[in-house]
Measured scan of single mutants.
Amino acid sequence: MTSCHIAEEHIQKVAIFGGTHGNELTGVFLVKHWLENGAEIQRTGLEVKPFITNPRAVKKCTRYIDCDLNRIFDLENLGKKMSEDLPYEVRRAQEINHLFGPKDSEDSYDIIFDLHNTTSNMGCTLILEDSRNNFLIQMFHYIKTSLAPLPCYVYLIEHPSLKYATTRSIAKYPVGIEVGPQPQGVLRADILDQMRKMIKHALDFIHHFNEGKEFPPCAIEVYKIIEKVDYPRDENGEIAAIIHPNLQDQDWKPLHPGDPMFLTLDGKTIPLGGDCTVYPVFVNEAAYYEKKEAFAKTTKLTLNAKSIRCCLH
């Protein structure tokens, strides 16, 4: 018999989150649709729960009410004593943790798909938090293969000092899905179709896995975050240069030392320094102006996964 890495157990509980950011409308629209008619997301033997994560922000069509829901799922915020004085999103995070967690427990949901849009030209993107997770690498390989020839990129946010504390991190297997470009507060049919297909293929993978299909060893190309880059700023902290036209919409493309990065209003080009080629992502993302992030630098690498098969009882 072929030796293989056996994944822990079959997958039982899956959640699909929309509206973690209330103005990213593809996930909101799909989740609302699936709450009314969820036939397309159901798979035999699998509990799939669509869920609106930040209903107040969705109602106002804004990213958040008090603070970013997708950055506060750490033990400090989840452990705060519940009171009306807490920011709305912290209270909501505790409610979500109660419903789908608790985080880092045996009772937490197996998989959470968190649906997002970006204003950046990132196409279909899967966000991975753990480079050693054979199950998710296999799932992402399946999704990428199923979507081809449509490109699907994998963004690895594993980093020693950049801690995200994402909404989906309460699950055993957290999956971020990011599709763009799409303006905030807008629905685009092409973007919706791409996100819908990503979810379909992900659920198909889980179904095949649960039925005992063995997935042979595989490898995927990923883009691992190195650092986030702020806009150049003046002495008052105001933005002093904008994304250069040569960099705009060039997510995932190589940016070499000396290539144009920013452009000042008086026409001066600010190039990339250093001696390493990087791959920019979230270029000129609207939501990241407040976070002082013009783009993120990534490096390209390959992740390998062992063969996996479900432990059938």
Rank of each mutant, 00 (worst) to 15 (best):
D104G: 13
E95K: 15
N77L: 07
N133C: 15
D249Q: 02
P271E: 08
R63K: 14
I191M: 06
N284P: 02
K291F: 08
K197R: 10
G274N: 06
L312E: 14
P254S: 06
D259F: 04
N70R: 07
N37P: 00
T119I: 03
V222D: 00
E106W: 12
Y142N: 03
Y142D: 00
P181W: 01
R309M: 11
G267H: 09
I65W: 09
H208V: 09
L203V: 04
R56G: 09
V175H: 02
D74W: 09
A39L: 11
I6C: 12
A296T: 14
K49S: 14
K144E: 05
K268G: 09
I111G: 01
G123L: 03
K60H: 15
N210R: 13
K59G: 13
I308E: 04
T20F: 01
R71L: 14
H10D: 13
L136C: 06
A240I: 11
H208A: 13
L192G: 01
I127M: 09
G274W: 03
V283Y: 02
H141M: 03
M122W: 01
F100D: 06
T2Q: 13
C152Q: 01
T302P: 04
S146W: 07
L255F: 09
Q182E: 06
L86E: 14
P217S: 10
I270G: 02
T26Q: 02
R132N: 13
G176L: 07
G22M: 09
T118G: 06
H5Y: 12
Y109L: 05
G79L: 12
G258W: 13
V58S: 08
P216R: 05
A93F: 15
I6L: 15
N117L: 03
H208K: 11
E290N: 14
L265C: 15
P160F: 13
M261L: 13
T277F: 04
H10S: 14
K291R: 14
T264P: 00
I16W: 01
T167Q: 14
E36W: 06
D190N: 06
D85Q: 08
C310Q: 08
H116T: 05
L187Y: 03
D275T: 14
L156Q: 05
H10Q: 14
G176N: 08
R71V: 09
G22S: 14
G19R: 02
Y64F: 14
E9A: 12
G212R: 05
